[in-house]
Write a protein that binds this DNA or RNA. Structure first.
Length: 363
DNA sequence: TCAATGCACGC
DNA sequence: CCCTTTTGCATTGA
């Protein structure tokens, strides 16, 4: 009785930059750097994705654009703003291809997909590998894009495996090889271990998954709480029972904007808020929901993030009501934090479906 | 239950 | 030449 699953993780290689290579054959061979611009004239912002030609001289995701420009000096590099409509369109088409091959499908992000092949392959990893090869061939035939695929007994292992050989890789980790595969890897390969957690462990001499495995469950729970502690304990052992499957509707929408110049003037801020509120309301309308909670997030000139939120007595998607609340929250914030704000944002959450609302009214 | 905060994450 | 954006989750404290 096969209790063992076979899970596939498909990761599109340097996706945004590869999509641009595909759209612009004339850029062939040149370094491509896709950016998130906050001020396109002054060239402010960060690097979103760079192709391998750009990575070769040190350009990385999240790097300020001016830094990337320094590294790219004399390298004939191309800097582009993101064309998200293009990426969404490609992503949707590729998702369709991937989904066809499995029993259960999950789009984890714009460039990542999970597939459950348990029933389709009946425990046979050779079959799973053949399917993965077909997925790669199909995606390349239709879109001329490469991806890296990982196969393992669960999502955790499949995702780490897809990252193991890039670009255009295919890595299969048999169940009996999982521990051997994970043990020497740095702990931040594990989903959920980021900069802070890595620092915490490194200060204690814990660098690899093997080191982490030797840390007792009690200590992990003590330090990180029940949920994350238990997850880390299991993950170090290659254990992950999370199912591949549909993700429920979104729970929040937010929009943030970096101001041209930091400001602590409420009127100036209100001018910008108007547009942001419009955008989150448009998202609510698309999803046919009303929000019960409205909030703000702002980053001050010292790069400290501040948040405030207010739960309303009735769910709504009315611009006037939302904007009024948001202005109140900003007014309070500026009173408390007497610093100019560099970024300002709005957030809506705690949704109720409009349909559900109609239903309630029928009672 | 609500509000604030922090971490992760990947583009 | 400083340092984006979006969402989700967990924790904590009232």
């Amino acid at each position: 009785m096969g209790k063992e699953r076979i899970i596939v993780h498909v990761d599109l290689d340097y996706f945004f930059a590869q999509a641009e290579e595909r759209e612009h054959p004339e850029y062939a061979g040149r370094p491509i750097i896709v950016c998130v611009y906050t001020d396109i004239e002054r060239g402010r912002g960060v690097v979103s994705t760079a192709n391998y030609a750009a990575r070769a001289f040190g350009v990385r995701s999240g790097m300020p654009i001016f830094e990337a420009r320094k590294l790219a000096q004399g390298k004939d590099a191309i800097f582009l703003p993101g064309n998200y409509e293009l990426y969404e369109r490609l992503s949707a088409g590729i998702g369709e291809i991937v989904a066809r091959y499995g029993d259960t499908f999950e789009q984890a992000s714009i460039d990542e997909f999970f597939l459950d092949l348990t029933a389709r392959c009946d425990g046979d990893y050779t079959k799973a590998k053949e399917i993965a090869e077909k997925i790669k061939a199909d995606i390349f035939a239709k879109y001329k894009l490469t991806c890296s695929i990982g196969i393992g007994p669960n999502k955790l292992v499949a995702k780490i495996a897809s990252d193991f050989k890039k670009p255009d890789g295919l890595t299969v980790i048999l169940p009996e090889k999982v521990q051997e595969f994970l043990d020497p890897l740095p702990i931040d390969k594990i989903l959920g271990i980021g900069r802070k957690t890595k620092e915490y462990f490194e200060a204690r001499g814990i660098k690899t998954v093997r080191d982490l495995r030797e840390t007792g469950a009690a200590i992990l729970i003590e330090e990180f709480g029940k949920t994350i502690g238990n997850w880390l304990y299991a993950a170090a052992r290659g254990i992950d029972d999370s199912p591949v499957g549909l993700i429920e509707g979104q729970k929040q929408f937010s929009r943030i904007k970096t101001l041209k110049e930091p400001s602590d003037n409420l009127d100036e801020i209100i001018k910008e808020l108007d547009q942001l509120v419009k955008e989150v309301i448009a998202e609510m309308k698309r999803n046919e929901v009303w929000c019960k909670t409205v909030g703000i997030n702002a980053v001050d000139i010292n790069m400290r993030m501040h948040t405030k939120s207010k739960t309303l007595s009735h769910p709504t998607d009315e611009p006037e009501i939302l904007l009024k609340r948001i202005v109140e929250l900003y007014s309070e914030l500026l009173d408390e934090v007497r610093l100019p704000m560099r970024r300002i944002g709005v957030r809506v959450e705690n949704f109720e479906s409009v349909k559900g609302q109609r239903k309630l009214e029928e009672f």
